[in-house]
Amino acid sequence: MKYIVTFIWALMLTQMVNFILNSLQGGGTFYFELGIILAVLITLTMYILDLMLKNPDEAK
């Protein structure tokens, strides 16, 4: 569940940053896919960091 929430927040924030940076550059073509790819990468990074930083006693 926490990774679903992480993905939703990452998706919203990356789309917002993508829109703002696109607007600052003159409002060309908006690439929605770029925000989705970044959100997936952020979620995978959080998942990997969670696995790496877990206490070995908690993993059992």
Rank of each mutant, 00 (worst) to 15 (best):
M52V: 15
L51K: 14
F32C: 00
Q15A: 08
Y31D: 03
F7R: 09
A10L: 05
G35I: 01
L11G: 01
N55K: 06
F30Y: 13
F30P: 06
M46C: 10
L41N: 06
L41T: 01
L41G: 12
M12G: 13
F32V: 01
M16I: 15
G26H: 05
G28Q: 02
K60L: 06
W9E: 13
E33Y: 07
K60I: 00
L53I: 15
W9Y: 11
Y3V: 06
L41Q: 01
M1V: 11
M46K: 15
A39R: 01
G28E: 05
L44C: 11
I36W: 03
P56A: 00
T45F: 08
M1Q: 13
T6D: 10
N22E: 09
L34I: 15
L49I: 13
N22C: 10
A39Q: 02
M46R: 13
T6Q: 04
V40N: 00
F19Y: 13
E58P: 00
I4L: 09
L49C: 08
N55D: 08
A59G: 00
G26C: 02
F19S: 06
L38E: 10
T6K: 10
T14W: 09
Y47I: 11
G26F: 02
Y31V: 11
M52Q: 10
T43D: 00
T43I: 02
F7P: 11
T6F: 05
F7E: 07
D50M: 03
A10H: 05
T14L: 12
F30E: 01
M1R: 10
I42H: 09
Y31R: 11
G35N: 02
M1P: 09
V17Q: 04
M46L: 11
G26N: 04
K2G: 09
G27C: 02
T6I: 06
T6Y: 15
L24K: 05
L34T: 12
V17M: 01
Y3E: 08
G27F: 03
S23D: 14
G35H: 05
G28D: 07
Y31F: 14
T45V: 12
F7D: 03
I8W: 06
M12L: 15
